[in-house]
Simulated scan of single mutants.
Amino acid sequence: MNAVLEGVLADLSAEGDALEKLVAPLDEQGWRTPTPAEGWDIATTIAHLAWTDVAAIAAGTDKEAWDALVMKGFEDPLGFVDAEAFREAEKPGAEIFAWWKDGRPALVTMLREFPEGQKLPWFGPPMSPASMATARFMETWAHSLDVYDALGLRYEPTDRIRHVAHLGVRTRNFSFGVHELEPPAEEFRIDLVAPSGEVWSYGPEDAAQTLTGSAYDFCLLVTQRRHRDDLDLVANGADVDRWLDVAQAFAGPSGAGREASA
Score class of each variant (00 low, 15 high):
2 N>T: 00
7 G>S: 09
7 G>I: 00
9 L>Y: 10
12 L>A: 08
14 A>W: 10
15 E>R: 09
20 E>D: 13
21 K>W: 13
24 A>L: 14
26 L>I: 11
28 E>M: 11
28 E>V: 08
28 E>S: 11
29 Q>P: 05
31 W>K: 11
32 R>Y: 02
34 P>H: 12
36 P>H: 09
39 G>P: 07
40 W>Q: 00
41 D>N: 14
41 D>S: 12
41 D>G: 10
42 I>M: 10
45 T>Q: 11
46 I>P: 01
49 L>V: 09
51 W>A: 08
52 T>R: 06
52 T>V: 15
56 A>P: 07
60 G>W: 01
61 T>Y: 03
66 W>N: 02
67 D>C: 11
70 V>G: 08
72 K>G: 15
72 K>L: 11
73 G>W: 04
73 G>S: 14
75 E>M: 09
77 P>M: 09
80 F>I: 11
80 F>K: 05
81 V>L: 06
82 D>I: 13
85 A>Q: 08
85 A>R: 00
85 A>V: 04
87 R>C: 07
87 R>G: 12
88 E>V: 07
90 E>A: 15
90 E>C: 11
91 K>H: 13
92 P>H: 02
93 G>Y: 05
93 G>C: 10
94 A>R: 10
95 E>K: 14
95 E>L: 12
97 F>M: 12
99 W>K: 14
102 D>S: 12
103 G>M: 03
110 M>P: 04
111 L>P: 08
112 R>F: 07
113 E>Y: 10
115 P>C: 04
120 L>P: 03
122 W>C: 08
124 G>P: 01
126 P>H: 13
127 M>Y: 13
131 S>E: 03
132 M>S: 06
134 T>L: 05
136 R>Q: 09
139 E>V: 13
140 T>F: 02
141 W>K: 06
142 A>P: 05
147 V>M: 05
148 Y>Q: 14
148 Y>H: 15
150 A>W: 01
150 A>H: 06
152 G>K: 03
152 G>T: 05
155 Y>T: 02
159 D>H: 01
162 R>Y: 05
167 L>W: 08
169 V>Q: 04
172 R>Q: 09
174 F>W: 11
174 F>Y: 14
175 S>Q: 04
175 S>P: 06
178 V>H: 05
180 E>H: 13
185 A>I: 07
187 E>T: 09
187 E>A: 12
189 R>C: 01
189 R>T: 00
190 I>R: 03
190 I>E: 07
191 D>H: 14
191 D>T: 00
192 L>S: 12
192 L>A: 10
193 V>F: 03
193 V>K: 14
194 A>E: 09
196 S>Y: 05
199 V>G: 04
200 W>E: 06
204 P>F: 04
206 D>E: 15
208 A>K: 15
213 G>F: 07
214 S>W: 10
219 C>R: 00
220 L>R: 02
223 T>A: 10
225 R>G: 02
227 H>L: 06
228 R>I: 11
229 D>F: 06
229 D>Y: 08
231 L>S: 01
232 D>K: 12
232 D>L: 13
234 V>N: 12
234 V>P: 06
236 N>T: 09
236 N>Y: 02
240 V>I: 08
242 R>G: 05
243 W>I: 00
245 D>H: 10
247 A>D: 04
249 A>F: 11
251 A>G: 15
252 G>R: 04
254 S>A: 12
256 A>K: 15
257 G>N: 12
258 R>N: 13
259 E>T: 14
259 E>F: 13
261 S>T: 07
262 A>C: 02
262 A>N: 11
